[in-house]
Amino acid sequence: MRNALVIKDLHASIGDLEILKGVDLEIPFGEVHALMGPNGSGKSTLSHVLMGKDDYTSSGSVLLDGEEIMGLGVDERARKGLFEAFQYPVEVPGVSLDDLVEEIGGAVGNGDFASRVAASTAQLGMGRFLKRPINEGLSGGEKKRSEMFQLALVQPKVAVLDEIDSGLDVDAVREVAGLVESSRSENLGVLVITHYSRILNYMKPDRIHVMIGGRIVRSGGREVADELEDTGYEALRAELGLVPVRDPLLDLP
């Protein structure tokens, strides 16, 4: 099976703080993988480093459909077929989603872009958001919906969905999971990043990876998520002999 994404020994740091400490991951085309991990373990950092955000110093290799993308600019990676759905979608005041859609069409609008816009607008009920400024004043769930909408427009080779389920009510989680499942194709590999196994109840991830402290410490099938659900990340840390990191919130007076 051809790999959509191959990550080898990926390291990333900000200043003196090393966040990713050697990540290895392979996602074949046609598969959906999940990445789980506690707060601060480096999941969003991984998606930003894949996308090429310049806040980080990074090393290692990332192959997108066999092609090295480390060293490329953010927009080049996007045009080569990488899509990141943001955990915190950025507000762009004064620019309507419509304007962005038009620009996306110019940048990566392959095939019949216009009819894809029409179909996705209808399917996701995006009509009422098109004239509004990007992400401004949108509810958490609406922002995630807008990210899924843009994903549908660009038809990437690899989609990294960073907490696409956070802030969603139960119906919306089911809907998003359904969208991810229905987007499965021979031309796409998906990485779904999540804290909770909730969204995984509505989809069939081919593999589940767990990241702790900037490394993938466990990979497996459905049972990995079930185990986490039962025992939590602390038990996994203990089992692996990792130093437990106390939740700083617990230390508050």
Binding site: F86, P89, V90, E91, V95, L100, A107
Partner: peptide, 28 residues
């Protein structure tokens, strides 16, 4: 820079991303 990054992650090159951001600035 966050707006620029977000827009570029959608495939817009930097000049287009900045142009859009400035357009939004004046649009307000």
């Amino acid at each position: 820079p966050e707006q620029r990054y977000y827009l570029m992650s959608r495939g817009l090159d930097r000049p287009s991303a900045d142009r859009l951001q400035v357009r939004g600035f004046f649009e307000e």
